[in-house]
Design a protein around this nucleic acid. Structure first.
Length: 117
DNA sequence: GTATTGACGTGCA
DNA sequence: CTGCACGCCAATA
């Protein structure tokens, strides 16, 4: 076994991480990559999600880019599709962007930590 | 085998 | 704010 070069096995880590994203929260491709053990390989996450077959109920819509923006093209309606799924979970988009401070699963701590609690 | 593209990220002009 | 370059890895031509 050593090699487990199966593509599925390689993507399994990413799929598993994505599945751990709580409802109503979002994570970036880079964060998913890091949590899956693929630091700096955000691109692989996008590839894994694209290869993810439907039916496994993968919350792929909770994954956006670091800017809080949907990376899918608007041309074929993919953008709208994800946007709708997000709004359905209470995640609203502001000017095409998500407020990561509020909906980010792993938000970066800011220097202004007053009122945290 | 190389070249190009892609559901990305970060830095810089 | 936008656009461009480079890095990262895998799939595709």
């Amino acid at each position: 076994m050593a090699r487990a070069t199966s593509r599925s096995s390689r993507f399994a880590e990413i799929w598993s991480t994505v599945r751990h994203i709580p409802r109503g929260k979002v994570a970036s491709y880079g964060e998913i990559a890091r949590l899956s053990g693929f630091i700096g390989q955000a691109r692989r996450v996008g590839y894994a999600l694209r290869s993810a077959p439907p039916g496994m109920r993968l919350p792929w819509h909770r994954v956006v880019n670091s800017q809080g923006r949907i990376s899918l093209p608007k041309g074929d309606g993919s953008y709208q599709r994800q946007k709708r799924l997000l709004e359905k979970e209470g995640i609203s988009l502001k000017a095409g962007k998500i407020d990561l401070q509020k909906h980010g699963w792993i938000r970066k701590l800011k220097y202004k930590r007053r009122q945290i609690r």
